[in-house]
Design a protein around this nucleic acid. Structure first.
Ligand SMILES: NC(=O)c1ccc[n+]([C@@H]2O[C@H](COP(=O)([O-])OP(=O)(O)OC[C@H]3O[C@@H](n4cnc5c(N)ncnc54)[C@H](O)[C@@H]3O)[C@@H](O)[C@H]2O)c1
Ligand SMILES: NC(=O)c1ccc[n+]([C@@H]2O[C@H](COP(=O)([O-])OP(=O)(O)OC[C@H]3O[C@@H](n4cnc5c(N)ncnc54)[C@H](O)[C@@H]3O)[C@@H](O)[C@H]2O)c1
Lengths: 237, 237
DNA sequence: CCATCTTTGTGCACGCGTTCACAAAGACAT
DNA sequence: ATGTCTTTGTGAACGCGTGCACAAAGATGG
């Protein structure tokens, strides 16, 4: 979700709806599991169940990629794995830098699922000089001032931000200036980026608050039966 | 995002659209920052800019909560902080259990932003007996078999899953059986839950793949100018 | 070759979410 | 009290996403 300018009109990239793009990794994961079990073909119904979506939706999603199914049979698992991988750009290598090697950054660096899909950690960066040179997940932490060199030399186009919120915009600006055009932000801030740069955010706090909202609602619906359970709310001063 | 049964028809809870609920934490964060700077009022235009959304959308969002603005002036910051907090259920305490205290689970336990908004870590649970008793972020790791007791005793309704994917469904089942009705899942799996249980997922791998898709598209649009840049794709067998 | 059966691919309708644009509300000065 | 100016609250239009339902495609068996 790009936060800076939200004036991207739901970017239907190459005719593939954004909502579909967001589900492709889900399908890919389910298909990979089937592939490992050497299942040759799968029906839209089965695959949809495994991915937790509606089967019509899945078929429509696949129809955007082309017609890869066989009526009466289903989809060829291996072939679909290949097609989706290619569509998502996972047939190539994506060097990634992680900025901010604290609790979270270190966990991310140690995360195995990273490398598994073509994402390779090119470097770990931190502003703390005390961390410099220290090995995290087998990689040395390097100083943030090496950012520009590393991004240029390793052709990094994806950056992961795991710094405190206060440093996130500054780090973003440096990443963008250095040539990074995709950012995954774990810091709880809205980032401003120029057009052409994609930002996606992962925000634990927001997720919990959304859960709390629904949780409160569930509890409220049980407890009290008054039609108007909340304070009518009046403007104070 | 509930994954199990997606047959919730966009649950317009108490008349508040789901999309609005998801933005309330964003507004709250921006408002809290204003409040700390002792800013008394804010216009929809300013607040929208701070939250990275369209101002009309923000006004419509607030209109679902009631009419808390003053025409010609804007919104009272303190009052709005209170109203949104109340609406999200943040005026009460939410005990949370974290299951799976590995790299990620430990980082989550150490995360300060947790406690700041009424979310209190009630317990850290792990299946690894070697971890039992060890202190993480000042809390002792307890064995997974204490789950049922802890959930019941501490009235836990929110669970965070940071176990490997293979254990996630089993942990989910135990959490649900014990009475947890909201789950935040960090494991890369689709979870099945009964109706009435909310699941939201945070999936690093999916986010990166979505970024890679757009990244590939950007690169492709520059490099080659052929109208049809991809392999036409033919069924193999 | 024909009949049957399974499963895809999609036309269609509907509802949610977004955004524009503006009338009404209210503050504030004179 | 009246006028001006700012900003809210919302009606209306539009586009995207979803899911039903079904025709067409193709496999399979006789
Ligand atoms: N820990 C979690 O589970 C968690 C969860 C959700 C969100 N977050 C967010 O992720 C971010 C990191 O969290 P954390 O717990 O790892 O924090 P942390 O304090 O452990 O680590 C932050 C790291 O960033 C480094 N840093 C600070 N300024 C920098 C700069 N300008 N350039 C480069 N590096 C810089 C620090 O030296 C430190 O090593 C925070 O924004 C936090 O809110 C963390
Ligand atoms: N580390 C990351 O940055 C990261 C990022 C995205 C997703 N994830 C996902 O989060 C999960 C945890 O990642 P991690 O890197 O912390 O892994 P980890 O192996 O470091 O930690 C997993 C922990 O779960 C515990 N565990 C295993 N089975 C359990 C069970 N049945 N009940 C309770 N505890 C159990 C293990 O003892 C271990 O302590 C994984 O599913 C991973 O895919 C991690």
């Amino acid at each position: 979700m790009a936060t800076g300018r939200s004036h991207r009109p739901a970017t239907r990239s190459r005719g593939i709806p954004e909502a579909t793009v967001a589900r492709l990794p889900l399908y890919l994961r389910a298909l990979t599991a089937l592939s490992e079990r050497s299942v040759p073909t799968v029906s839209s119904e089965e695959l949809a169940a495994a991915a937790g979506v509606n089967s019509a939706k899945l078929r429509k999603d696949f129809s955007y990629l082309g017609s890869y199914g066989t009526r009466g049979v289903g989809y060829d698992v291996e072939y679909l794995v290949y097609q989706i991988s290619r569509e998502l750009g996972l047939t190539q290598d994506w060097p990634v830098v992680i900025v901010g090697i604290g609790n979270l950054g270190a966990a991310l660096a140690n995360y195995g699922g990273f490398a598994s899909r073509g994402f390779r950690v090119a470097a770990l960066l931190d502003a703390d000089t005390a961390l410099a040179g220290k090995l995290v997940a087998g990689l040395p932490v390097r100083h943030i001032d090496e950012l520009e060199t590393i991004v240029a030399d390793s052709q990094v186009s994806i950056g992961v931000i795991a710094t405190p919120a206060g440093a996130a915009q500054e780090v973003t600006d440096r990443l963008v200036a250095a040539g990074v055009t995709s950012i995954l932000n774990f810091a709880p801030t809205v980032l401003s980026v120029p057009d052409g740069v994609d930002v996606r955010k992962v925000d634990l706090s927001i997720e919990l608050q959304i859960l709390a909202f629904h949780e409160q609602r569930k509890a409220g619906d049980e407890d009290r039966q008054e039609p108007d359970g909340d304070v009518p709310a009046v403007m104070p001063a």
